[in-house]
Nucleic acid binder design. Structure first.
Length: 422
RNA sequence: GUGGGUGUAGCUCAGGUGGUUAGAGCGUCUGGUUGUGGCCCAGAAGGUCGGGGGUUCAAGUCUCCUCACUCACCCCA
């Protein structure tokens, strides 16, 4: 048996990389338009970082992390997400002391030992943006605007932005106990999954898909009733900002997060087509004013989001591979291959993209490859006179003999080929 | 993690009730007259039928296990 790649960890071949690059460069551009700077952080962190930020009871930490002990005895983990490390770096470099507001973005591979499915892999790629130091609702709105601008720039339109507010941690604690009480009182009619969630993560019951739970959910106490006046004002301002920016959204009272450090604004962007199946969320984010203190920093407001590139990719129309040379060098005979190599090298030094075929196959075969490559010019290499050279325009089918020294100008279109042999 | 579906050439797929050298299209390669592409034509290469056990005179076809992919759930972005 030949060695195969790890389950859930995929190769990305040249024809696909084109689309990946588009996703990445587009994100860089949009982030920089919004005043965000790129950070590049390690793929491996101390396991403790994720225990402290994500929490010990979540599925991610409990059973999905790639954790190991290295030869020095340190407990390390392949990062399962990007926010924890970004916050760690923010604190480690004391970035908050240099500037009042720190706006960073990142892109990279993340690792989670989940069961692979469409749009979900064990090595997957996320892009994300985090803003530290600004508690205002305007920061939330700007961040969502960034996310929307990015998705729009990719040509994705069938999307829905869902927002909700979790309120401050005190409001949420109060709500949580009421909610727990409510579900306890009706535990007989809860689905099996939700019964489990009642112990591990009661808020999660709110976004249960089980039909058995729906009736109960409709009557469940609303988080919005437990928000403080400041929380409510904050959320209202977020909404009015979205309105004035012309960004459509729906308020989803059942939108929740399992993690404790989230506060106030929460948002997700979902795909409305069925292209992703059950994995319809393409972007998730929100405010996490409680995160930095978990890492030992002083209270620092923060908002951020992350998107999975595999899911975005699944929504993108197929783009043609763009590895198209402008010149294809054809060797008239096997002995002309040395000259073909020389011509290619000279043209490449001038910045032309050049391909060729040195296998010594027939001219016909080389021409077929030249045609398939999409090159606009074929240059014929021969053993003979090196002062002139024959070239063929593959779009018009015209063949010309030009002085070798004029070749660069002709193929770049700066000088018309003067003589024609066909 | 739970439950379903699928797994045959590089790719997309055919291969009723088990029976001789496993097929097609696309792609690749070589040709179709003396050195030149895209269309067309011909030929060739390429498969231990995901892997391993079992039943059988005989298994791509039945059975068990295993691996991979995929869908739903779970979880998440």
């Amino acid at each position: 048996m030949t060695v195969r790649s790890i389950r859930g960890m995929n190769d990305i071949l040249p024809h696909a990389v084109q689309a990946w690059r588009q996703l990445e460069t587009q994100f860089r551009d949009i982030c920089e338009l919004h005043g965000y700077g790129e950070v590049r952080l390690p793929v491996v962190e101390k396991t403790e970082l994720f225990h402290r930020t994500i929490g010990d009871t979540t599925d991610i930490v409990e059973k999905e992390m790639y954790s190991f002990v290295d030869k020095g005895g340190d407990a390390l983990t392949l990062r399962p997400e990007g926010t924890a490390a970004t916050a760690r770096a923010f604190l480690e470099h004391n970035a908050g002391a240099e500037e009042p507001v720190t706006k960073w973005f990142y892109m990279g591979s993340m690792y989670r030992r989940e069961r692979p499915a469409r749009g979900r892999y064990r090595q997957f790629h996320q892009i994300g943006a985090e803003c530290f130091g600004d508690p205002s609702p305007y920061a939330d709105a700007e961040l969502m605007a960034l996310a929307c601008a990015y998705l729009k720039s990719l040509g994705l339109h069938q999307l829905e932005v869902r927002i909700n507010s979790l309120g401050s941690s005190s409001a949420r604690t109060a709500y949580l106990s009421v909610l727990k009480e409510y579900f306890q009182a009706h535990r007989g009619s809860l689905s099996e999954d939700s019964l489990r969630r009642l112990e591990s993560n009661p808020m999660r019951i709110l976004d249960s898909k089980s039909p058995e739970d729906q009736a109960l959910l409709a009557q469940a106490p609303r988080l919005s009733q437990y928000l403080s006046e400041e929380d409510t004002d904050h959320f209202k301002t977020v909404q009015s900002c979205m309105d004035s920016l012309g960004l459509a959204y729906v308020i989803d009272p059942h939108l929740v997060r399992g993690l404790d450090y989230y506060s106030r604004t929460l948002f997700e962007v979902h795909d409305c087509t069925d292209a992703l199946g059950a994995q319809s969320a393409v972007c998730g984010g929100g405010r996490y004013d409680g995160l930095i203190p978990l890492l030992g920093g002083k209270p620092t407001p923060a908002v951020g989001f992350a998107m999975g590139l595999e899911r975005l990719l699944a929504l993108m129309p197929d783009s043609p591979s763009a590895r198209t040379p402008t010149v294809f060098v054809v060797s008239r005979s096997p002995s002309a291959r040395r000259e073909a190599l020389q011509i290619s090298s000279n043209l490449r030094a001038l910045g032309f993209s050049v391909d060729g075929d040195y296998r010594g196959t027939s001219v016909k075969s080389q021409m077929r490859r030249a045609s398939k490559s999409g090159a606009t010019w074929v240059v014929f290499a021969t053993d003979g006179d090196q002062n002139v050279i024959e070239i063929k325009n593959m779009e018009q089918g015209e063949q010309h003999t030009v002085a070798t020294e004029q070749l660069p100008q002709v193929i770049s279109g700066q000088r018309p080929p003067n003589s024609s042999t066909e």
